[in-house]
Simulated assay, not measured.
Amino acid sequence: MDIVAIERVSFDMCIEKEWIEGKTLAASLNISLRTLQSLRESGKLSFSTVGKKVYYKVSEVQKLLDSGRIKVTIKE
């Protein structure tokens, strides 16, 4: 692996730790994509888009979870 490839892998790992794609987030929290959209529209959750994908900052999602502003239901 050359230096450029190593830098790219490190960059990708850093991005994955800081940002999460909307579909992945919705599935992991067991909420709908519409709920995420409502959080965006209300200003409770900021986001970035790349193409047609929406990404959320993991640290911001964690803050909302900690504050109880996002309710997570667990399927059994």
Score class of each variant (00 low, 15 high):
residue 32 S to Y: 06
residue 9 V to D: 12
residue 51 G to W: 14
residue 33 L to D: 01
residue 3 I to L: 08
residue 31 I to C: 02
residue 72 V to N: 05
residue 21 E to C: 02
residue 29 L to T: 06
residue 5 A to Q: 15
residue 74 I to H: 01
residue 46 S to R: 12
residue 67 S to C: 08
residue 33 L to M: 05
residue 21 E to R: 01
residue 55 Y to T: 07
residue 21 E to Q: 10
residue 12 D to T: 07
residue 41 E to C: 11
residue 34 R to A: 15
residue 19 W to D: 01
residue 65 L to H: 08
residue 7 E to I: 12
residue 72 V to F: 01
residue 72 V to Q: 06
residue 51 G to V: 09
residue 65 L to R: 11
residue 27 A to I: 09
residue 13 M to L: 14
residue 54 V to P: 00
residue 13 M to A: 15
residue 2 D to H: 09
residue 17 K to Y: 02
residue 70 I to N: 00
residue 55 Y to F: 15
residue 3 I to E: 14
residue 74 I to W: 03
residue 40 R to W: 00
residue 66 D to W: 00
residue 35 T to L: 03
residue 22 G to E: 05
residue 10 S to D: 13
residue 29 L to S: 10
residue 35 T to V: 06
residue 34 R to E: 09
residue 35 T to I: 03
residue 76 E to Y: 08
residue 76 E to L: 15
residue 41 E to M: 10
residue 60 E to S: 13
residue 59 S to F: 04
residue 8 R to F: 11
residue 15 I to Y: 06
residue 25 L to K: 02
residue 38 S to I: 11
residue 28 S to E: 15
residue 60 E to H: 04
residue 3 I to P: 00
residue 28 S to P: 01
residue 52 K to C: 06
residue 42 S to F: 04
residue 57 K to Y: 05
residue 9 V to E: 14
residue 23 K to A: 12
residue 45 L to H: 03
residue 54 V to K: 01
residue 42 S to L: 06
residue 33 L to W: 08
residue 54 V to H: 03
residue 73 T to E: 13
residue 12 D to S: 10
residue 30 N to F: 08
residue 40 R to G: 04
residue 19 W to Q: 02
residue 1 M to K: 05
residue 34 R to H: 08
residue 58 V to Q: 01
residue 27 A to D: 12
residue 16 E to S: 14
residue 26 A to H: 06
residue 15 I to D: 06
residue 42 S to D: 15
residue 18 E to H: 11
residue 5 A to V: 14
residue 31 I to F: 02
residue 24 T to C: 11
residue 34 R to Q: 12
residue 71 K to P: 04
residue 2 D to I: 13
residue 55 Y to E: 06
residue 67 S to W: 07
residue 42 S to V: 06
residue 64 L to I: 08
residue 55 Y to W: 11
residue 21 E to H: 04
residue 20 I to F: 04
residue 40 R to H: 03
residue 2 D to F: 04
residue 8 R to Q: 13
residue 61 V to W: 01
residue 4 V to W: 03
residue 23 K to Q: 11
residue 60 E to Y: 01
residue 34 R to G: 09
residue 61 V to Q: 05
residue 65 L to C: 01
residue 49 T to Q: 13
residue 37 Q to G: 05
